[in-house]
Amino acid sequence: MKTVIEAHNLSKVFNPETIPVRAINGVDLFVEQGEFTALVGPSGSGKTTLLNMLGGLYKPTTGNILINNVDITKLSENQLIEFRLHNIGFVFQSYNLIPVLSAKENVEFIMLLQKISKEKRETRVANLLREVGLSDKMEVRPSQLSGGQQQRVAVARALASKPQFILADEPTANLDSKSATNLLDIMDKLNRDENITFLFSTHDQRVIERARRVITLVDGRIESDVVIETLEAVT
């Protein structure tokens, strides 16, 4: 199996010069291609901070993050933006679609940033929206979609850039039970059929039950890391 994320001795201290808050403390983490991993833990345990660091949104205070053997902690701000565009997909808690664009345009947006040709974009957008069950909502704006539908568009958008992996920060937090299940089914299918790597931060038991690896964070440290399918604790 190919390792897509490799983090060594990660730590993150906020406000180091005033009131230091150690959000992440000495985390080592390896995520392999095709994993469906949940990052769990109580509020304030550092799940979102770790996810943001892995996504290149935060610079770690110490440690390194290698994605496909590229140390993203050494990249400049502009290089990181470019790296994220081509390697990392994001699904945020609050859907985060561009409200003035239709579902189709939202998915197409990221491919436009990647300068993909119109023909390829249109084919891929149609395929992705079909995969998430929104072929009939292509021209609809986010405000006319339900929360679950918006989050499915967000998943399609995350996949549009053909990333190495998708980081999803509490993707089901704002969804009702039916929409959450529907979204999880789609992500599970994408993981199994297309070997797409997902890393979630979540409190949601439904997500945890679907995950095939569960990493528990407490006070910025990994307390446990369990591979569910084999029921094997690796740490």
Binding site: N78, H86, L113
Partner: peptide, 16 residues
Amino acid sequence: TYEIGMMIALGMNKAK
């Protein structure tokens, strides 16, 4: 602000 942050996170560079 939220939307702009999201666009930067997704890979929209500063020039754009």
